[in-house]
Amino acid sequence: MLKIFFKKKLSKKGFIGPIGDDLPSLIPIVVSLLLFFTIFAITLNSYSSKNSEIAKQTVMISASREMKGDSIILSYEQFKDRCDRLKLKYYPYNFMMAVYPTGGINSSEELQYVLTNFTKMSFDQEGKLTLSGYDYVDNIVGGDGEKYVCGYKKKQGSNFSGKTKSYYLRYYPIAVQIDQDILGKKYVVILPAVMAVIVWE
């Protein structure tokens, strides 16, 4: 009888229930699980955002290849045709591209305004870049109504603005054949230009 009492007394010491008794060991387990799931969520988030960034860049490379062809654009019709056949419009990204002249040692620094110009461009209801949006962006290659610009925006997508956080901007050198006014006369010439491409979500 004394033996039983002694045993019971010992096992009851510090016993605060089946979970309470394991409380010290539960704390590291809970901390571990919290740590694991937090890091797992961060990893998953970072993985998908980096994947999306890589996809954006890859899409931009393939789109710019389609647009610039062999680094020469011979006419506005050719540029427009390439723009219409561009596969980039089927991808889940918004994009715009514009061709800027770069010739002349003393030419003005038009390229400083590339981003500002992109913020001024607008889209129609079908998501295609409209003429009205860039009429006043006059430093882009091309005459009235035939500016060398191309772009598509997803219906749910937001316009590119100064507040757009994640975007990719790349420049590609190209040669453009255009009618150029030289000292009052029109000449068909091939001039150096740069195609600015921007992709955003």
Binding site: D70, S71, I72, P101, G103, G104, I105, N106, S107, P173, I174, A175, Q180, I182, Y187, V189, I190, L191, P192
Partner: peptide, 17 residues
């Protein structure tokens, strides 16, 4: 590639100048 396509003035200057 662009350098091999470009037109220039025979004076060596760019068309813009």
């Amino acid at each position: 590639k662009v350098v091999s396509y470009i037109n220039v003035l025979r004076t060596g200057m760019s068309v813009y100048d």
